[in-house]
Design a protein around this nucleic acid. Structure first.
Length: 490
RNA sequence: CGGGGUGUAGUACAGUUGGUAGUAUGCCUGGUUUGGGACCAGGAGGUCGUCGGUUCGAGUCCGGCCACCCCGACCA
């Protein structure tokens, strides 16, 4: 195992990359821009999936699965949607290969050209709404609350592990409603679910808000989002929930008969989070020693390291550890007993820190004698010797404490990195420090684009419950009624 | 896709004026070790990113391509 990861301050991107690879989360693959998610990384994703899936089901949604391929013609049915995705679509044109008649290798069989090309889904609104047409006739068929766990492909120019890969895993919810109010309510409900998940499971504080027209999803009336702040002062859009109006219903002719017996188009929402959340998780909490995982998403919450000289000592320790492991497991804690005999404790400590295991227990001859354990917490790196008595309660409390501590730490960082700018000069200076900046904006897409071109900062969102306040746009000096949230972003 | 950099053992790197590849670490075996990344001895492991060119001879020189990293444009 490689030992060193780059310091955060030295090179933040390199640190992130080192962390992902050395902690065994993911690797680059033989395919450009596509990653291999390794078992440890995938275990974290499975925890994320499990928690979210429960939240979706608790709010009345069901899972289904739609095809990977979408007929090309579907995309042109919703004008702004095709415009948004056209430049990043992978296209299937043939269905057969053959031996190269001119020599070595294999070539595409030109005789096997598809009548209509298939698009590898970049998102599934079109295929799903085309399907919904057949599912919805009456208001009694509504609401339709469907989620799918899937992979999607977006042919991005530049990729980074988890943060932006050509293929990524996500969930996408697609709901259909009889009224605008109901669809809007759903859109807000799901962004709140995302915020709840981010803060209570990932321990990442987020700001909920609505996107400006420039940043809106292709085909949406409104896009709601959660925005998180990373340790380098850049924002990361961590989840989006779109109010689609009747756009897709009209594009795919999905009508229903309402209570009054009159035909109407169906109202829609869609919402998604992706493996990008893994990036947020990694960047929000980790340090120069490696990952720091929130206990609620850590595949292994407690690791037990025996300290021993001879095999008999290990046997003795094991007799003590195995019941302890069971006790902890009955309290719902995942425990690993690291009894490898070819590695020294110090090596194991470093490795478990790299992997971000929240709690480490060391037990050696000294502890056996005094009926104690050495407990080390990953978030603060503090070590403490405690009595074995009531250890389960102690660990349960400690895990809760770590969960809330890393959230508080991230929240404190965000608060200390959130500023107000009243002039453009001040705004530009603050951007160099990184962080969230509240500033006045005249409300036009042109000014937003201008600011983006000049400073690389974008409006992350207009936060919900944003206080109204008279002011002047930092760029144009035109009147503004509220400050909006700016940042440089991933 | 543009600018810069890199590509040699699982990993990180060295390799001189072109002469047929080495160091560390990891791995395997044996022994001594084990409370913060152990040590000794022996051993295995490389079509030098790829394709082509120059040459008696290419890791080394030239060209194409590919991949990765950093900085932009694009984006969840």
């Amino acid at each position: 195992m490689a030992k060193e990861i780059t310091n955060r301050t030295e090179n933040y991107s390199q640190w992130y990359n080192d962390l992902v690879i050395k902690a065994g989360l993911a690797d680059n693959s033989a395919v450009r821009g596509c990653m291999v998610i390794k078992p440890y990384g995938y275990a974290i994703w499975e925890k994320i999936q499990a928690a979210l899936d429960k939240m979706f089901k608790d709010t009345g949604h069901s899972n289904a699965y739609f095809p990977l391929f979408i007929p090309k013609s579907f995309f042109s049915k919703e004008a702004s949607h095709v415009e948004g995705f056209a430049k990043e679509c992978a296209v299937v044109t043939h269905y057969r290969l053959k031996n190269d008649p001119n020599g070595k290798g294999i070539v595409v069989d030109e005789d096997a050209k598809l009548e209509e090309e298939l698009i590898v889904r970049p998102t599934s609104e079109t295929i799903i709404w085309n399907t919904y047409r057949g599912w919805i006739q009456s208001y009694r068929d509504l609401p339709l609350l469907i989620n799918q766990w899937a992979n999607v492909v977006r042919w991005e120019m530049r990729t980074r592990l988890f943060l932006r890969t050509t293929e990524f895993l996500w969930q996408e919810g697609h709901t259909a409603h009889a009224t605008q109010e109901e669809a809007l309510e759903e859109t807000y409900k799901m962004v709140n679910v995302y915020a709840d998940f981010a803060e209570n499971f990932m321990a990442v504080p987020v700001i909920k808000g609505v996107k400006t027209a420039n940043e809106r999803f292709a085909g949406a009336i409104d896009t709601l989002c959660i925005e998180a702040l990373m340790q380098d002062g850049k924002a990361l859009q961590s989840g989006t929930s779109h109010f689609l109006g009747q756009n897709f219903a009209k594009a795919f002719d999905v009508k229903f008969t309402n209570k009054e017996g009159k035909p109407d188009y169906v109202w829609a929402s869609s919402w998604g989070v992706s493996t990008r959340l893994m990036g947020a998780l990694i960047m929000a909490h980790s340090d120069d020693n490696g990952l720091v995982l929130p206990p609620k998403l850590a595949p292994i919450q407690v690791v037990i390291v025996p300290i021993f000289h001879k095999e008999e000592q290990l046997t003795l320790i094991s007799e003590k550890v195995l019941p302890l492991k069971k006790q902890l497991e009955t309290r719902g804690i995942s425990v690993q007993f690291d009894n490898r005999d070819n590695l020294k404790p110090g090596f194991k400590f470093a490795e478990h820190e790299l992997k971000g295991i929240p709690v480490r227990i060391a037990i050696g001859p000294r502890d056996i004698e005094s009926n104690t354990l050495e407990i080390a917490r990953r978030d603060t790196l503090e070590k403490k010797t405690v009595s074995v008595d009531n250890i389960e309660d102690y660990i349960v409390t400690l895990l809760d404490d770590i969960q809330s501590n890393i959230f508080q730490k991230a929240l404190k960082f965000r608060e200390e990195s959130t500023y107000k700018a009243d002039t453009y000069e001040e705004f530009k200076q603050l951007l160099e420090k990184g962080g969230f900046i509240y500033a006045h904006w005249d409300g036009t897409p042109e000014t937003e684009t201008l600011i983006k071109d000049e400073t690389k900062a974008t409006i992350r969102c207009i936060p919900f419950d944003n206080p109204l306040e008279e002011g002047k746009c930092i760029r144009t000096g035109k009147p503004s009624t509220q400050r909006v949230l700016f940042a440089r972003s991933y």
